[in-house]
């Protein structure tokens, strides 16, 4: 059974008075441990697909299942719990909480899962050391560089030991050198920790670390390529 299984997915949403057909009948399977890059031009439905893959949203039609749970059948709270446990997000704009230190940002997903304080702090410290920020745990996001912020975000994504790392343009706001180190880190972590990783990206360098590249256009899969 694939970890993620999308069949005949349609996602429409209203933008003002017009209905946008963001995804129009999409089939996609992602297996455990895979690194998949999803590429495509703007408006191809990448972001919408990311929302569906990350259980942030439910499809208008079709079935999306994560580890056999049909997202359609879950209540909003069940969806949140599933997402909190199974998916770790890395965003283009880092999306750290500015008022919290690096350590607290990493602890945040564990807080909502009710992890005990000491266990939480210990795991946050271990993760920040793993991403190379052992010395900067007490810094707030505005005291960190872009690359450091993205490292914090990666540590946060791993906090609840999720099955899936979902990275949306993780290098989009970074210079190429920093971007390259972040990609290295993501790849290393996903392999070391045995995570399934989905990269939503424009960047061919980012796509290069993937086992498989899925190209989207107009809300449909137009090409699937396996990297050697």
């Amino acid at each position: 059974m694939p970890l993620l299984d999308l069949k005949g997915i349609v996602k429409d949403y209203e933008l003002g008075k017009t209905v946008v057909h963001a995804v129009r009948g999409l089939d996609l399977n992602i297996d455990r441990g895979e690194i998949v890059a999803i590429m495509g031009p703007s408006g191809s439905g990448k972001s919408t697909l990311m929302h569906l893959l990350g259980a942030l949203d439910t499809p208008s039609a079709g079935t999306a299942s994560l580890e056999g749970h049909n997202l359609h059948e879950l209540s909003e709270n069940e969806l949140v719990t599933l997402r909190g446990k199974k998916v770790g997000f890395v965003f283009q704009t880092f999306n750290l909480i500015q008022s919290l230190t690096a350590q607290k940002n990493v602890e945040l997903p564990m807080i909502f899962q009710g992890v005990r304080k000491s266990a939480r702090a210990e795991r946050a410290r271990a993760l920040l050391e793993k991403v190379g920020l052992g010395e900067r745990m007490k810094h707030r996001p505005n005291e960190l560089s872009g690359g450091e912020r993205q490292r914090v975000a990666i540590a946060r994504a791993l906090a609840n030991d999720p099955e899936i790392l979902l990275a949306d343009e993780p290098t989009g706001n970074l210079d190429s050198e920093t971007g390259a180190t972040i990609l290295e880190l993501l790849k290393k972590l996903s392999i070391d920790e045995g995570k399934t990783m989905i990269l939503i990206t424009h960047d061919p360098d980012a796509a290069a670390i993937a086992h498989r590249i899925v190209r989207l256009r107009d809300g449909r899969v137009v090409q699937e390529v396996r990297n050697a």
Partner: peptide, 16 residues
């Protein structure tokens, strides 16, 4: 608003 989105993405329920 964005922080709310982030918190919800990382597992915060409405009541949280």
């Amino acid at each position: 608003t964005k922080d709310i989105g982030v918190m919800k993405a990382v597992g915060a329920k409405n009541r949280h």
